[in-house]
């Protein structure tokens, strides 16, 4: 072994340059463009109701309005008469145990007004949540929108049995999907857990 030949391994450990670090591209911040037509819809509602309503978001084709339970009926009437929305596509409950509230979300659309055909207006309101629910006989209550939008009839019945939100003024607050003798918690609440999970 001559001194000329160098052990490549020994050399590498001492003098090799560290490879250049990959350049991390920072995501470009795209300015949020608020679509004009959707903005005009939310503006009309804010103009009418002032600080009783809160605009959740204004996205492409979707406008979300949060409203307290005492004003939800008035806002819904304005949405039907003033903004030409005519049917409710979906009524969803969302349980928030940490806030002690249950959110009920109405997705409202329009068939008659062709300019609103793409639009969905999301109307969200919240009901007080009871830890030990007695569906129909506790404080978890909301005013019904059935007299404003006929199409919510079965949807509200479903929210009643799945979350225990009683709709005051609904003509037919019976069970729909669950068996008549269901005696457990309303099943879509977060504290109703699936066995083994």
């Amino acid at each position: 072994m001559s001194t000329e030949t160098e052990n490549p391994n020994a050399d590498d450990t001492s003098e090799v340059e560290s490879p250049p670090k990959p350049v991390v591209k920072k995501p470009e911040i795209v300015p949020v463009v608020i679509p004009a037509f959707e903005k005009s819809i939310s503006d009309k509602i804010v103009e009418k109701f002032g600080d009783k309503v809160e605009v959740g978001f204004v996205k492409e084709d979707r406008v979300r309005i949060n409203v307290g339970r005492e004003n939800v009926h008035d806002v819904a009437e304005f949405i039907r008469d003033g903004l030409n929305y005519d049917h409710v596509e979906s009524v969803s409950g969302v349980d928030y145990p940490q806030d002690n509230e249950i959110e009920v979300v109405y997705h409202i659309g329009s068939y008659d007004d062709s300019s609103l055909a793409r639009q969905i207006l999301v109307l969200a309101t919240r009901a007080q949540r009871e830890t030990n629910p007695i569906p129909g006989n506790d404080a978890t209550r909301l005013p019904t929108l059935r007299d404003v939008f006929y199409s919510v009839e079965f949807h509200e019945r479903e929210v009643f049995e799945m979350f225990g939100v009683f709709f005051e003024g609904h003509p037919d607050n019976r069970r729909l999907l669950l068996p008549e003798d269901w005696a457990d918690l309303p099943p879509l609440r977060k504290d109703f857990t699936i066995k083994g999970r």
Binding site: D86, H87, V88, E89, Y111, D112, A117, F149, Y150, S151
Partner: peptide, 18 residues
């Protein structure tokens, strides 16, 4: 058909172009 919030073939059979 509009008031009930029907959809699809039921709605289109009642003359709503949607």
């Amino acid at each position: 058909a509009i008031r009930y919030g029907t959809t699809g073939s039921v709605l289109r059979a009642s003359g709503v172009d949607y």
